[in-house]
Design a binder for these strands. Structure first.
Lengths: 163, 163
DNA sequence: CTCATGTCAGGTTGACTGACATTG
DNA sequence: CCAATGTCAGTCGACCTGACATGA
């Protein structure tokens, strides 16, 4: 019997960190497992950001990278892998002969639909599991948390102490 | 003006993914920035899991690794770096001469307190920013999401379709 | 010429697995 | 001998920066 249980929930703040941290990998991990189990075993977690940001009628690599918040070099590699797997295709940009655009193939659109369907099922079930609040409220609360955390130099209570 | 804005929020499900994903790095990133700015510039994000799981009176490396959900080799490296920085110390395990324990030094305890203080300030401010719900409710909702996502083979709606 | 696009090469971080010495 | 602890070495995934060719 190993004493693996949390040390002692030393305070609510640490618990907040654990839960918020945990939520992330959980959701995208579940989508990934679903897609891999239903016919796309070579997908990797990083690929999700491509499908989340590509437009059906084509998107430039640089735009994809900006939307995903990453370098165009990193996005370029992800796209190359998905082209190889047959989910994306590149075609010349009609407006700019320097660049090309990326769009999902028919197979890619099927994949996107499967992911969306799964996410919608998760959301519906999550909604049903909440008694006194809605998913929309939870998401809005998380956005509020992000605003607090991103504000420099930190939450008001700390600013007061420092200043 | 680059068209960096989200493609079009294709559906609520994708928005859910974005928000839940975003919340994670945001919170631990903010703690890290705070600690680095207030005297511990050499901390890296991976070090947080050590402080979150170490007991004041000492914890074995293997136990630390289990609590953090990672391999003991990886945890061993994190601990070594924090020992080098003076935040942790190792001492012989009184009950088992094969192993040693890890505990925070006085400096380490100060660091832990600073982190906790910051997190409590964030939590208080987050609580104040929420009108119709509490932080506790949001955390409970995230735990519910995790339960849905971790259950195999997926949410009920998909299981129904597959079966 | 400059600016945007995309590729190539190499580096960093945070994890992993395998092999091993030590000791109960 | 077996199991647990911890170290050493090597690998990987997901990103980064720098340098560069190409074309508007």
């Amino acid at each position: 019997m190993t004493d693996t249980a949390a040390p002692d929930p030393r305070d609510d703040a640490a618990e907040m960190t654990r839960v918020v941290k945990g939520a992330r990998g959980t959701l995208s991990g579940a989508v990934l497992r679903h897609l891999r189990a239903s016919g796309s075993p070579a997908l990797r977690s990083a690929h999700q950001q491509v499908f989340e940001n590509v437009d059906l009628d084509g998107t430039r690599l640089t735009t994809l990278a900006e939307r995903a918040g990453m370098s165009h070099q990193a996005m370029g590699e992800l796209v190359a892998e998905l082209v190889e797997q047959g989910y994306l295709e590149r075609f010349p940009d009609p407006d700019d002969r320097r660049s090309r655009r990326v769009r999902p193939t028919a197979e890619g659109r099927v994949l996107i639909d499967r992911g969306r369907e799964y996410l919608e099922a998760v959301r519906e079930e999550w909604e049903r599991s909440l008694s006194d609040l809605t998913v929309g409220q939870v998401l809005e609360a998380l956005r509020a948390l992000a605003r607090i955390c991103e504000r420099e130099p930190g939450p008001e209570a700390i600013r007061r102490r420092d200043g």
